[in-house]
Design a protein around this nucleic acid. Structure first.
Length: 278
DNA sequence: ACGCCCACCTGGAGGC
DNA sequence: TGCCTCCAGGTGGGCG
């Protein structure tokens, strides 16, 4: 469920609370996530100090001191991270909390993932670019290698609909169904256009819109972190209204006489304005 | 080779 | 209230 901005918000929220802290206790209630949590998981990170957290695509990468292992963490569709402190920790656990981590400042991090599409896996630092989960990932949207020239070269080889291409993690890493819809609405491009039909100017606008929309969402996530005093400590979801996503049958925000439509592409709902997205 | 479909799993919403 | 169907923000394997 979480796309790049939500994962980035989780990263920031976690770093604010547990960066530099030692993992003092670990409880795993279920190992059978999309990729099973190895039995050795506890041994690998217990009593190590969290150095820092990076994000790659929709993955969190947690680096601990004095170990060559990195914790690779994906939230899947339904994953949430909860941070609890002080007497909040007394409260009975939510359902579907599979992993609980306790740090030496008494901050508790819970991983709740009802559908269990997420994963938590230690990998060796040397594998960060070669591990099957990470090797195929395309450029980060804000990296220099995600350029107009790059995207032109990719798109000219692709006949698939642009919406599907934007969700392809090998093309650009971190967009999902929501932000792909939002980006295409912003630039006024139909989600059904073939990738190889986009003109250079449109590709340029597309990249700009990706930057803008992701930045706006990350900012919204950041302010949600500041706003909420961690009552339930839920990270990774912040209330945000989108322009087209989940707005079927509502008036288009740009040309209100037309109505937002929903169609299924590659098995996922696409929301778009049939009038102003061409 | 590419692009689509499906399964993986559970919960929530809406209809009857 | 209960049961049934549909839908959900991700991903990779398999198939045409």
């Amino acid at each position: 469920m979480p796309e790049l901005p939500e994962v980035e918000t989780v990263r920031l929220g976690l770093e604010a609370k547990i960066k530099g802290r030692k993992l003092t206790a670990l409880k795993i209630d279920r190992h059978d996530l999309r990729v099973p949590i190895p039995q050795s998981f506890g041994q690998t990170f217990l009593h190590h100090q969290l150095d820092h957290i990076e994000r790659r695509a929709k993955y969190l990468l947690m680096f601990f001191k004095n170990t060559e292992q990195v914790l690779v963490w994906h939230l899947g569709m339904s994953g949430k991270v909860l941070i609890l402190e002080g007497n909040e920790r007394e409260k009975p656990s939510e359902s579907h909390v599979h992993v609980v981590m306790l740090f030496d400042n008494e901050v508790e991090v819970r991983f709740r993932d009802p559908r269990r599409f997420g994963l938590m896996l230690p990998i060796h630092k040397m594998e960060l670019n070669t591990h099957p989960l990470l090797a195929h990932l395309g450029p980060e949207p804000f990296a220099a290698d995600f350029s107009s020239r790059y995207l032109q070269n990719v798109l000219k080889t692709k006949a698939a609909p642009i919406k599907n291409i934007l969700c392809d993690q090998t093309v650009v890493a971190g967009l999902g169904n929501i932000y792909a819809c939002e980006v295409l609405f912003r630039v006024g491009i139909s989600p059904f256009r073939a990738g190889n039909s986009l003109r250079d100017a449109e590709i340029h606008q597309l990249i700009q819109a990706i930057h803008e929309i992701l930045n706006e969402a990350i900012q919204a996530g950041g302010s949600s972190l500041r706003d909420h005093v961690q009552p339930n400590g839920s990270l990774g979801y912040f209330q945000k209204r989108f322009h087209v996503y989940d707005r079927e049958d509502e008036p288009c925000p740009r040309c209100p006489s037309s109505i937002i439509a929903r169609k299924v592409q590659a098995g996922r709902s696409t929301f778009y304005c049939p009038n102003c997205q061409r």
